[in-house]
Nucleic acid binder design. Structure first.
Lengths: 340, 340
DNA sequence: CTGAAAGCGCTAACAG
DNA sequence: CTGTTAGCGCTTTCAG
């Protein structure tokens, strides 16, 4: 495997050239206070002349920190990676880190070998903290990291009693407001296409659906609830099933943007008019569903804030290891686009 | 910033517990030959008992390597990140690395500050090599890395005389075969929607278009060439322009999947039938355009092979720093889907 | 086959 | 304000 380029100048050579001690050079490259301006410039000239770049391994070893954090995506199904949800989160986390000297590293974990490699990487001190996206309920990775004291932040709980620091959106509230909106606009038979049963986020959105019905004193029916898996195709199939099982349905709440897109396609294929015959609201506000219906009303997650909150919690946990864990739940927002 | 967890066991403690020297423990954790089986087991037991994990900073410092490589995306426009092209490349690079002990790190470079941070990260020895995706012609990042001797591989040339190791698809050949296909099926007036003039990949696809016309002895017209920027919207606008400027047009070669999708939308909006009135071929074989027209014929890039080739070249360059640079051009393939 | 010793390049504490 | 001195934890000779 590749060795580091030889002949790379060291801090010591810089010190020699500048005619100062190593400590002084160290202070200069770390922007520490308490260095005479003239010597600082002397050192900087030497650094420039030699093209010196600090060896990060040595710095980590001596300073006991990496100045890097990882944003991990644990997704066996790789298609998810391309979804707007993830690229937006990555973008916002990157933004939140842009003015720090912390390097953001994205890593992908699909297999158990990769999981192990990541744990060794993190425990090995190459990153000071880890953010995890799209963690499934049975995934032990968060515990493997948190148990050894590594600052860890999850995007989304794995269950109702998550024991690792997390940031989540108000999925129950978002779903509730979507369904309440449909009911208050005269819809009587609101169906829902849910996500995978083993994902907490899907459970929450289903709970919100149920709560909205209850609060409105509306009667739900088992046939109005159809299972999907967040994919477009599952949305299509679910809608086909609904059309057959619940012909009275006049509105649908889809637990994801992608499934909403599939549902819309299936509705149109069946000759139903949207929203006149059947109104649709999807969770998440992404291009796919909107391309399918520009007037689609959606529940928007504040992705920008989610990324920011993850970074903030992580940095705080890195500063102060006293806090065991905590969480932040962010508000969602109903984006009305005149298709009730 | 976060300090490394204290109380982490060190190799020395493992050695003490196992009653052996530090060198022996080092040999065991590195699977080096020449350790008696009984002592090896002794050491392994001690490692397990202590929950020992090697400190990677110390290992890097002593061993002069990081066992990690970076896959960098330099894309000021973040929407690109979600595109299938990138997620596929990331996936295939990850696959190619999965059986090694090399950790893959994705990083994003948008601003110059981030560019600088990456260079310091890489030159600082945190990675043994760098792969760059989506590099624009004026980007100095590849040179900054390659000049200091860091193994570097580009995905796509920046220009015709690229001086850094790269992997590229046969863009000229792919475009040529697409256009040749249209011509050989009776199309007479083949227009093209090109990519940004300052991207070499776009120049190549345009050259392929021209070559196909020449070889067929067909007469091209300036009005048949319209500029896009690879975006869906630009495809739509370009097609609108073509419909006006070149009403005789009976086929279009779009230099990207996304622009093909936009072009199809505009064609339909104008009441033209596809492919009867106008045939379309797009470069790249992604969901967007196919969703717009399931029968779309496309030029497919072998993304799987591209990722593999990048990793292979990078690892080779890491082994052997004698080679200055080299390149691999991969074949493209016309995927026929009966819309001539 | 295994132990001891010499660094890898840097930070941080401590004198001056 | 600045030089000196200890390590940080591991790999890698070099003896034994």
């Amino acid at each position: 495997m590749g060795r580091q380029r030889p002949g790379t100048p060291t801090l010591e050579e810089v010190a020699a050239l500048a005619g100062v001690g190593r400590g002084t050079v160290s202070r200069v490259i770390n922007n520490a206070a308490g260095v005479k301006d003239s010597t600082r410039r002397l050192v900087q000239r030497a650094i420039a002349e030699l093209g010196y770049v600090p060896n990060l391994a040595a710095r980590s070893l001596a300073g006991r920190r990496a100045d890097a954090v990882a944003l991990v995506m644990t997704e066996p199904d790789w298609r998810q990676f391309g979804e707007p949800f993830f690229s937006e989160i990555v973008r916002s986390v990157g933004d939140a880190l842009t003015d720090t000297k912390v390097q953001l590293l994205l890593t992908l974990v699909r297999t158990n070998a990769e999981r192990q490699r990541l744990v060794e990487y993190a425990r090995g001190g190459r990153v000071d903290g880890v953010m995890l996206m799209s963690v499934h309920a049975e995934d032990a990775l968060p515990d493997m990291l948190a148990e050894v004291g590594l600052p860890t932040v999850l995007l989304g709980r794995r269950s109702g009693d998550e024991s690792v620091t997390y940031v989540d959106a108000d999925n129950v509230g978002g779903a509730r407001s979507a369904v309440a909106h449909l009911l208050s606009h005269g819809r009587r038979a609101v169906a829902t296409i849910t996500g995978p049963r083993d994902m907490y986020v899907a459970q929450c959105r289903l709970r919100g659906y149920r709560e909205a019905l209850e609060r409105a004193g509306a009667e739900g029916r088992p046939s109005w609830i159809v299972q999907g898996d967040f994919s477009e195709d599952s949305g299509r199939r679910a809608m086909a099933e609904l059309l057959e099982r619940a012909p009275e349905m006049d509105a649908v709440f889809a637990a994801s943007d992608t499934m909403a897109a599939g549902a819309l396609t299936a509705l149109r294929a069946a000759g139903r008019r949207v929203p006149d015959d059947v109104a649709v609201i999807g969770f998440d506000d992404f291009p796919l569903a909107q391309r399918t219906d520009p007037k689609l009303t959606t529940v928007r997650q504040p992705l920008e804030e989610i990324g920011r909150a993850m970074v903030r919690l992580l940095l705080e946990e890195m500063e102060d290891s006293a806090v065991a864990w905590r969480h932040v739940i962010l508000r969602t927002e109903l984006v009305l686009r005149d298709s009730a």
